[in-house]
Amino acid sequence: MLKRIILALAMAGGPLSAAELIGDADKGEIVFRKCSGCHEVGVSARNRIGPELNRIFGRRAAAEKDGFFYSKGLARMGADGLDWEFKTLDAYLENPKALVTGTRMNFSGLKDPQDRADVLAYLRQFSDMPQNIPESSPTARAREVELPPEVLALVGDPEYGEYLANECQTCHQVDGSNDGIPAIIGWPAEDFVIAMHAYKQKIRPHPVMQMMAGRLTEEEIAALAAYFNGLE
């Protein structure tokens, strides 16, 4: 199973990526109704509860202020180098709080990949270069943080997690303080697992976390998720 997934990823990332359409923009307009309570897009769109979404493709996270006040979490990810393109927007829309710790976007996420593809196809029309060659940057479908079900189903050993967590606690405080370094206690285990795999696959940008996550096995990530989930 794992081999198959790696192979699939390798093919998706290769130069001969399938010319796969990213979604149906018309259906995406309907999906966007879930977003439009906070976000505007199109002519005369303004920042409201959330920022306006014209030219979102290719935009650095939290970069276009124009009076908009981003959360510290999103600003941190922007400073780390998070750019909004298909794969990062897709990961964000799937579970906003898992990709960007501390985001104020109060939305539980679009779980259906087709909904995400459709809404992104819709939003792509309002970016500066709505490329219609599907494989061209920045809107090409690329790798996603798509974890095989058996990875998400791993039940971590909290005792091992407690030992591994020692290393995290050099920076992340167990009392949940989050000045300069985010709090990681009490996260739903699945969000934790997805976040760590996103670092491991270098979709999340922070170099220390990429290094720390990079050497953790799937079992070790599950163990950490189990341990930190138990802390309040």
């Binding site: 050099t170 920076c171 000045d179 300069g180």
Partner: peptide
């Protein structure tokens, strides 16, 4: 700065 707070607490 966050790291300093974290490691000294640790």
């Amino acid at each position: 700065i966050g790291w300093y707070e974290g490691i000294t607490a640790d």
